[in-house]
Design a protein around this nucleic acid. Sequence first.
DNA 1: GCCTTCTTGAGAATGGATGTCAAAACCGTT
DNA 2: AACGGTTTTGACATCCATTCTCAAGAAGGC
Lengths: 133, 133
Amino acid sequence: MQRMTRQRAAVSDALEDLDDFRSAQQLHEILRRRGDNVGLATVYRTLQSLADGGDVDVLRTEEGENLYRRCERREHHHHLVCRVCGRTVEIDGPTVEAWANQVGTSHGFVDIQHTIELFGTCAGCADAASAQD
Amino acid sequence: MQRMTRQRAAVSDALEDLDDFRSAQQLHEILRRRGDNVGLATVYRTLQSLADGGDVDVLRTEEGENLYRRCERREHHHHLVCRVCGRTVEIDGPTVEAWANQVGTSHGFVDIQHTIELFGTCAGCADAASAQD
DNA sequence: GCCTTCTTGAGAATGGATGTCAAAACCGTT
DNA sequence: AACGGTTTTGACATCCATTCTCAAGAAGGC
């Protein structure tokens, strides 16, 4: 049975305060700065169990690092992430879900699962970039 | 300038003969079996440069391993992959492309890029599984 | 064939993630 | 409030895909 520990609470709280996707290592560092000392392995384990329970979402970066985020909605959804500042918008796309299933079944596949993530540069970051020129 | 070497040709040929996504390590092993000895580092380098040139597609597995495949079409497309046997169907979804861009711009994001992969169990593998029960 | 430049390969290094296991913490029970 | 079975922790080792290093080996223009 899952027990409530100081460490799990700390990781959960930290995620609550953050808005963007963070890596296990970043969270570990953030907790250390706060004075909440939590072992790195524990941060990894906690994030994994939170992800398994659907309490946080996982995003895999181009570099193969896992990023975690507590989302507004627990239901299935996707993300539009700013590649510069990490700002994240939650997206739910009934259109895509339907498309994915339809494409899958039309090829005789069952138990269709999809991975969809959108990346872009948000308005703020695009402005900042053009101001530099 | 890019030179043509025995190793690059070997990797390219091996990909030509295969239909499913393979990892660098698998390709390295396949080449070794054939007698085409190519260093592992070279396989990695070659696959990376082929991917950069758009000659092969890359797929990231759940476990964080990169898989490579020479595709029929060089244009942008997605994949429907059987999670059991790896059989792969190329998908082009003008619907999704449009959706992705529209969602992105409606939130003020520019330079929208998307990652879409579909996984499922193909008809053959689903039959095999049900026959086992 | 020569020579410059690019490529190769064996092994070391990297880095995120997971395994190990004794010590510490939970928490229902007494 | 102490007990005790069970879970969790944390420091460290380990794993494993990938990348780095750099001397030795090929490509290919001349």
